[in-house]
Design a protein around this nucleic acid. Structure first.
Length: 537
RNA sequence: GCCCUCGUAGCUCAGUAGGAUAGAGCGACCGCCUCCUAAGCGGUAGGUCACAGGUUCGAUUCCUGUCGAGGGCGCCA
């Protein structure tokens, strides 16, 4: 690859000049400014001081050495600014990129093997089975599914998991609320009064015990949530039941083990986790003085169970749960697990805006905005793309009008449109028997238009973007890259006619190759976000 | 009081394992269709990267502090 050629030429020049103390890796970057060449190195700036040179002199010597024996594909080397070394390349390297993309196709392009088959468990959504999924669940749902896809692409063995809180106080209240609605009584204190509870209660068979109503309600809610998630293409491998850990005795076992490791103690009639031993602010109650578990205890058991199935655990939690991280890590550490192998990704809140006004999510009134409503309003693709467009570290303002609009302002349509245009070109070429191209000699060196090279540069970046988004668990980097690729595709489309009377057949053939590579790029990126690539808009 | 995530163009947001003149979309203004989707392309205007120190050849990026926004600090989940 060309970048390796450049770095080895830099290394050789540095050796020839007697510069030691090289950094472990020589980094190259693509300068924003085209006057600075195709690739740039700051190695002279980084090493000059130790070597006793001025950065600019060192850069100048390096450039002279490389210029005297230019590596294949490099046209010239110049220095600029405080001591940057800039490489101008012939377009050949981009034609190589094109060929690689075509050879790899959508199955391979952008995939690498940094995970090496290690098992990662991504737990997300995990909403209580006491009602439909609402807007607040959506960001974590889209995010969790996308990072799972990205980790899969970089070689991890991924399990998507939903933790079902099918026992405990909330479930009891939910069951009683269903029964109350069914028999026309008042909802119990702290119960669920939403309109959906009343609607569901009419579906429920009569004369159920509280226990039976709980089972029924849990199943009904899970089924409702599963269908909603399916609407946006999210399918879980595992739905893990909290209750199953009571029945199997796993929770009791965990209590016993914590006690044996002296990670827990009794005080004031309750059992406490000694979480301050591992950096938590205060110790936490595991078993209340009334004998009931707190929510923490099954959850600790659950995480421990997950560790028996995976090498790396990722939890996607909302910002309101961040205070919970320390105690969970402390619990895992006291049970002998490495807290570094538990990653908690926090998603900040989303503010929904419609007609320029914030959509209030008032759960107390029961008038929650259901995720289903959003998907029905704007469609699954817009739902996923809009949620993933932005870093989950920042509060998001989600404009429902924009997401629903079928105009260029809408990023998802902009990207999908690029794909639709490509398919349009391909079907036209197909009708003229120019595509697919078979067995012909295709001269990719005909591709030297600025717009063509721009598309190829973006394609070149994709594997790095995938790795970076995996390392940082940041799907928005994929979304941003897709917008850039789409921009270059629209520019190419505008300035470079592919199939037509005015285009020489050899150029058409070469451009059709580029079009196919761009298609592979768009499909590959969209796939990681769970967004479709339609043939027409 | 302590902890977490933020503060970048009028708006919505990228960018930062330290790099050259800080980017995109929208909105505003000005151009571009006999031909593959004008659902597009190009250009102009718009910034003390919240503020103040520090480290560095170089800081929007790293460190400290201040201010501002949201979230968290339960024998609730």
């Amino acid at each position: 690859m060309i970048t390796e050629t450049i770095t080895s030429s830099l290394k050789k020049a540095l050796e020839d000049l007697g510069v030691s103390h090289l950094p472990s890796e020589i980094n190259l970057e693509q300068p924003a400014n085209k006057d600075h060449g195709d690739w740039s190195s700051n190695i002279a700036l980084a090493t000059a001081k130790n070597a006793g040179w001025s950065p600019r002199d060192l850069a100048s010597e390096i450039a002279e050495l490389i210029n005297s024996d230019l590596p294949n594909g490099v046209e010239n080397v110049t220095i600029a600014g405080p001591g940057f070394i800039n490489f101008a390349l012939s377009p050949q390297w981009l034609h190589d990129v094109l060929q690689t993309v075509l050879d790899q196709g959508t199955e391979e392009f952008g995939k690498v093997d940094v995970g090496q088959g290690r098992k990662v468990n991504v737990e997300f959504v995990s909403a209580n089975p006491t009602g439909p999924l609402h807007a607040g669940h959506a960001r974590g749902a889209c995010y969790g599914d996308s990072i799972a896809s990205i980790l899969d692409a970089v070689g991890y063995e991924v399990e998507r998991e939903f933790y079902v809180n099918d026992r405990g106080l909330q479930m009891g209240l939910f069951a009683e609320s269903l029964l109350a609605f069914q028999s026309g009584k008042d909802v119990p204190e702290g119960g669920y009064g939403g309109a959906y509870v009343e609607a569901w209660s009419h579906e429920m068979p009569n004369n159920l015990s509280v226990h039976e109503a709980l089972d029924w309600g849990c199943q009904y809610a899970m089924e409702d949530q599963r269908r909603t998630l399916e609407m946006i293409g999210i399918v879980f491998d595992t739905w893990f039941s909290e209750r199953s850990m009571v029945e199997s005795g796993a929770i009791e076992q965990t209590m016993k083990d914590l006690s044996e490791k002296e990670a827990s103690y009794s005080q004031n009639g309750a059992t406490w986790l000694r979480s301050t031993d591992y950096g938590d602010d205060k110790d936490r109650v595991l078993v209340k003085s009334d004998g009931e578990f707190t929510y923490l205890t099954p959850d600790v058991t659950y995480h421990r169970e997950k560790f028996s199935r995976a090498d790396w655990l990722i939890n996607v939690w909302g910002a309101d749960h961040h205070g919970y991280i320390a105690r969970m890590k402390a619990a895992m550490e006291s049970l002998g697990h490495d807290p570094e192998q538990l990653t908690v990704a926090i998603t900040q809140l989303v503010k929904l805006v419609r007609s320029g006004e914030e959509v209030r999510l008032s759960k107390r009134q029961g008038d929650i905005i259901e995720l289903r409503e959003i998907v029905e309003e704007i469609g699954p693709d817009a739902t996923r793309f809009m949620y993933l467009l932005q870093s989950v570290d920042t509060k998001q303002t989600f404009d429902l009008d924009l997401a629903a609009s079928k105009v260029m302002d809408n990023p998802v349509f902009y990207v999908q449109m690029a794909h639709a245009r490509i398919r349009s070109i391909q079907s036209k070429a197909e009708a003229m028997s120019m595509w697919p191209v078979e067995g012909l000699d295709i001269d990719l060196s005909l591709l030297e238009h600025e717009r063509e090279l721009e598309v190829l540069k973006n394609l070149f970046n994709f594997p790095d973007v995938v790795q970076l988004s995996a390392r940082e668990l940041a799907p928005h980097k994929i979304a941003v890259w897709l917008r850039e690729l789409a921009t270059s595709v629209h520019g190419f489309y505008h300035d470079c006619y592919v199939v037509g009377d005015t285009v020489p057949p050899e150029l058409s053939a070469a451009r059709l190759q580029l079009v196919e590579a761009a298609r592979i790029g768009l499909v590959s990126g969209l796939d990681l976000l769970g967004v479709s690539a339609p043939d027409s808009m």
